[in-house]
Lab assay of single mutants.
Amino acid sequence: MSIQHFRVALIPFFAAFCLPVFAHPETLVKVKDAEDQLGARVGYIELDLNSGKILESFRPEERFPMMSTFKVLLCGAVLSRVDAGQEQLGRRIHYSQNDLVEYSPVTEKHLTDGMTVRELCSAAITMSDNTAANLLLTTIGGPKELTAFLHNMGDHVTRLDRWEPELNEAIPNDERDTTMPAAMATTLRKLLTGELLTLASRQQLIDWMEADKVAGPLLRSALPAGWFIADKSGAGERGSRGIIAALGPDGKPSRIVVIYTTGSQATMDERNRQIAEIGASLIKHW
Rank of each mutant, 00 (worst) to 15 (best):
T261K: 04
L160M: 08
E62F: 06
A77H: 06
T116D: 08
P65G: 04
M180Q: 09
S240G: 10
L135M: 12
S96A: 10
L38P: 07
S281H: 09
W286S: 00
K30F: 06
H156Y: 10
L55S: 11
W286Q: 04
P249F: 05
R273I: 15
T179V: 02
K190G: 15
S128K: 02
K190C: 15
G43P: 00
P249W: 05
I256R: 01
G248I: 01
H94F: 08
E166M: 13
L160K: 01
I93A: 04
S264F: 05
V42F: 07
T193A: 11
H151S: 08
A148K: 07
Q203H: 05
G242V: 01
A132P: 01
Y44Q: 00
N173Y: 13
S128V: 02
S281T: 12
D48K: 03
Q37S: 09
G226I: 02
I278K: 02
T138V: 13
L188Q: 02
A200I: 11
D155V: 01
E175M: 12
Q37R: 09
G141C: 10
L38M: 08
S221T: 15
R59Q: 14
D174G: 06
N168D: 12
T27R: 04
E270H: 06
I171V: 15
D36S: 14
A183R: 13
R176F: 10
L146R: 01
T179I: 01
P249L: 11
D269I: 07
R162K: 09
A235N: 05
S96D: 08
L74H: 00
L111G: 11
G236D: 05
L28M: 08
T261C: 13
D207T: 09
K144R: 08
G194D: 08
G239L: 01
E26P: 13
S201K: 10
E119H: 12
T139Q: 15
D250N: 07
A182K: 12
E26G: 15
N272Y: 01
G248M: 00
R41D: 14
T69W: 00
I244P: 00
L160A: 08
M180T: 06
E195Q: 14
A183G: 10
T187V: 08
I283Y: 15
L111E: 08
L47M: 10
L120N: 01
Y95V: 06
V31R: 01
L89P: 13
G39L: 13
E164D: 02
R189P: 02
R241P: 02
S80F: 12
L282F: 06
S254N: 13
E175A: 13
T158R: 01
F64C: 01
S104C: 07
Y260D: 01
R41W: 05
S128Q: 00
A276N: 12
K53F: 09
T158N: 02
M67I: 09
G43V: 01
T139F: 12
G234C: 14
T147L: 09
K232F: 02
K71W: 00
V117Y: 04
L219N: 04
G236H: 02
L47Y: 10
L150Q: 08
L196N: 10
R241G: 05
L89F: 12
V258D: 00
L111V: 10
A245N: 00
A123W: 03
E270T: 15
V42G: 00
P65E: 02
D231E: 04
K71S: 00
N173D: 13
S281M: 13
D155I: 01
E61W: 09
G52K: 06
P181S: 04
I93Q: 05
E277T: 06
A182W: 06
P249C: 09
D99V: 06
R202L: 06
P172I: 06
D83S: 07
L219S: 04
E62C: 07
A266L: 10
R118Y: 08
S264C: 13
L137V: 11
A148Y: 12
V106D: 15
N50A: 10
S68Y: 01
E195A: 14
T186R: 10
S221R: 14
K252M: 10
R238G: 08
R59N: 15
L205E: 01
A211N: 06
L191E: 02
K190V: 15
T193W: 09
L79N: 00
D33N: 06
Q274H: 11
P249K: 14
S221M: 15
K32Q: 14
I243N: 01
T138P: 14
G239A: 05
L89K: 04
N50P: 08
D207V: 10
I244Q: 00
V31K: 01
A200R: 14
M67P: 00
R176I: 06
L47H: 03
L74T: 12
N134C: 04
Q204D: 09
G226A: 09
R273D: 13
R273T: 13
D129I: 01
D161M: 06
I275L: 15
E62R: 07
S240F: 03
V31N: 00
A40H: 04
I259N: 02
R59V: 02
S233H: 02
G194A: 09
C75G: 11
L199E: 11
E237P: 10
K109L: 11
A222F: 10
A84M: 11
P217Q: 13
I54N: 15
T139W: 14
G234N: 02
P172E: 13
K109W: 08
A235R: 04
M153F: 08
L199M: 13
K53T: 11
N272L: 02
G154Q: 07
E164C: 01
R255F: 02
K71N: 01
S96I: 12
T262R: 08
R63M: 10
S128N: 02
E46C: 06
P143S: 13
I125D: 01
P105Q: 12
Q204H: 14
G194T: 10
Q204G: 05
Q204P: 03
G226L: 07
A185F: 01
R273L: 10
W208A: 04
G234V: 01
G263R: 13
G216D: 06
A170Q: 13
A148D: 10
D99Q: 08
D161V: 09
I259K: 00
R159V: 13
G194P: 10
G279Q: 03
T262F: 07
F228S: 06
C75A: 13
I275Y: 15
T267L: 09
P105Y: 06
N134W: 01
G248E: 02
F64I: 02
P105D: 05
P65D: 01
G248W: 02
T186Q: 15
Q97M: 10
E237S: 09
A246R: 02
T147I: 07
L188M: 12
S281I: 13
L167S: 04
Q86G: 11
A246I: 08
T262Q: 10
N168W: 03
E87P: 03
M153D: 04
M153G: 06
D207K: 10
A123K: 02
L100R: 05
L79E: 03
G242W: 00
P105W: 05
L191P: 00
S104G: 11
G154E: 13
L135H: 04
L247R: 01
I93F: 09
S80K: 06
T126R: 10
K232Y: 00
Y103G: 11
T158H: 00
D83V: 04
L218P: 03
A84W: 15
R41I: 13
S233I: 01
R189K: 14
A84P: 04
A170L: 06
K144F: 07
A280C: 13
L74W: 00
T179H: 00
N98G: 06
A235P: 03
Q274I: 14
M180W: 09
R238N: 07
G43F: 00
T198A: 09
G236P: 00
L199V: 10
V257W: 00
G263W: 05
L199H: 13
A245L: 04
S264K: 14
L223M: 09
V214T: 09
K252A: 12
L38A: 10
R81E: 07
A230Q: 02
V29E: 15
I140A: 15
L191Y: 08
E61L: 10
I256L: 11
F228C: 08
Y95M: 08
T126F: 02
I275F: 15
G114V: 03
H156W: 12
W227P: 00
G248H: 04
H94Q: 11
A34T: 12
F58G: 05
G216N: 06
